[in-house]
Amino acid sequence: MLIIYAIAALGVIGLLFGLFLGVAARFFAVDTDPRVEAVKEELPGANCGACGYAGCANFAEAVVSGEAKVNGCIPGGDETSKAIAGLLGQEVGSSVQPVATVFCIGDSFKTSDKFIYDGVADCEVAGNFLGGFKTCSYGCLGYGNCVKACLFDAIKMGEHGLPVVDTEKCTGCGLCANACPRTIIKMLPRGDSGYLVLCNSHDRGKSVSKACEVGCIACKACVKVCPEEAIVMEDNLAVIDLEKCTDCGKCAEKCPPVTIYRRNAIPTEAQALAYAAEKSAESA
């Protein structure tokens, strides 16, 4: 008898709740466009915000309503744009997937420090404290705000005190570039070709060479040697226009502190560590 009561009671309660939920679901139904769900499925789902919307769901809604463009998802790249365009029956424009590039090669062995910083481990805080602990007030502080910002695990802090970008994992969303308080990271069109001045310092030549072995000292040697006139001086810093650069490499040969590198030959962490070992062997 007891069992029957128990079964009946639970059964009835369960049934009532079920019915109630069913009715509520019908009564409070929200009309959703099935296309929004379908578009959301195609997105990477990292909610990085590179498209300018709060998350992938918001972007999906915006695309379906025609507010955003089908190629708005930067991390998703061409594949995602095509998939979304297919779903919505629209044409894809081209979407360029940029890549994060670190414009500083002044690792902890090639630069000098003003003082020993022992505060909060954050680039923003470290940079604001007496203008940063590095003698160069434009260089990378190495506390990895960019690393913390990356949602794709594509950037890590190397042992040499500079961030290392994994170009295969980088989706070009630009979160790291926004996170860097010194704007050292810039988003560039993907590719190996073209040369870059890997320095961010707008200081005069003399103070740069005091602070860093490899900083741009604004000697203008590269500007003079460039046959395409692709290099201009912007406030004591040489800047190469990648669109004009023909990959001849004359600027890199001429650069006295060797700040200019081809994009596929940017100094690696291993090279920096080897340099450090050599240096310490010399001094010993």
Binding site: Y5, A9, L10, F17, G18, L21, F28
Partner: peptide, 28 residues
Amino acid sequence: FNLTYLQIVTFILVIASLVQLVEIVLRK
């Protein structure tokens, strides 16, 4: 009904469906 020994399973039922309900209502 003298069914107090069913409280845990009943409460689970209540909480689960209640959360569901709250979600449905809130969404609207």
